[in-house]
């Protein structure tokens, strides 16, 4: 198990470099930049209780991009199984550990890039986002715990999805979840039923945790119970992290056990038929 850790770290950094050079960088920057532009345009809309949409949504969007890292895992894992990357890892001693460590490093690095773009852009362009008043300690633990939870869950989802095509379908419920998770508008504006659903998943708590770090305490009135609920945030994100970390090795082992030359060949046939 330990043998693949260092090569995995190197692997993650090499693929991170690939992700931030050339055309790939444009693809990665597109979403945070587009979101930022929308926030800048809508920032002065009043949410009541002295909050503007811009100041409220920047931290929520940071949380959202951490959660979207899950979809990157799903995309990478399904594509890497189709093209034989995972089989290659299986044929190498310690290769699966290296592959997974590498993936988590690459995706986490990409997510941190998204977060940096939104935070820096928000500080420069959105009124009410002030980096001097940010509680960086809270921001760090929310980000780290959130990354562990979403990356572990992303790997589980990625292992369960059968093809790059079905990876697209996984995006739908995740986007739906984001819509009800109070990223752009306080979740208290939603019906109680949706509020309950949102609070079962990590997206809402990531947004809440980052808002707690970014916004003044008075802004907590817009939240459920009028509080930042830091303990509940840690508990829910921690629970999801635990579920992910326990499930991931089991599901991933099952996934890699099925990889063989003939399964890759069969997927290649199907993929070529799709293209042809």
């Amino acid at each position: 198990m330990r043998a693949g850790l260092r090569p995995g770290l190197r692997r993650g950094l090499i693929e991170l470099r690939q992700a931030v050079t050339g055309a790939d960088l444009v693809g990665h920057l597109l979403w945070p930049v587009v979101t930022l532009v929308a926030l800048v345009l809508l920032q002065h809309r009043d949410l009541g209780s002295g909050l503007t949409l811009g100041a409220f949504a920047v931290p929520g969007v940071v949380g959202m991009f951490v959660a979207l890292g899950m979809l990157l895992d799903v995309q990478y894992l399904s594509a890497d199984r189709e093209d034989g990357t995972v089989l290659r890892a299986r044929a190498t001693p310690g290769g699966i550990t290296g592959y997974l460590v590498g993936k988590v490093v690459t995706v986490s690095g990409t997510v941190v890039l998204y977060v940096a773009v939104v935070v820096a852009g928000g500080a420069l362009l959105v009124d009410g986002v002030d980096l001097r008043t940010v509680d960086w300690l809270t921001f760090t633990w929310v980000l780290v715990l959130g990354l562990v939870a979403t990356q572990a869950l992303g790997l589980v989802l990625g292992a369960l999805v059968r093809s790059p095509r079905s990876a697209g379908y996984v995006a739908l419920p995740v986007v739906g979840l984001i819509a009800i998770s109070g990223v752009f508008v306080p979740v208290t504006a939603l019906a109680a039923g949706w509020q309950a659903v949102a609070q079962a998943f990590p997206v809402y708590w990531l947004g809440l945790g980052v808002r707690a770090a970014f916004l003044p305490d008075a802004a907590a009135v817009a939240e459920v119970g009028g509080s930042w609920r830091p303990w509940a945030t840690a508990a829910v994100l921690g629970a999801w992290a635990l579920v992910g970390v326990v499930l991931a090795p089991v599901v991933l082992r099952r996934m890699t056990r099925k990889e063989s030359g003939s399964s890759v060949a069969a997927r290649r046939e199907r993929a070529l038929q799709r293209v042809g």
Binding site: D83, G84, T85, L87, R88, A91, G261, V264
Partner: peptide, 18 residues
């Protein structure tokens, strides 16, 4: 893994690690 290290597998690559 020690056993795995003694075996080389030549896979028919397609587009991995492009």
């Amino acid at each position: 893994e020690r056993w795995r290290a003694r075996i080389g597998v030549v896979l028919q690559s397609w587009r991995d690690h492009g």
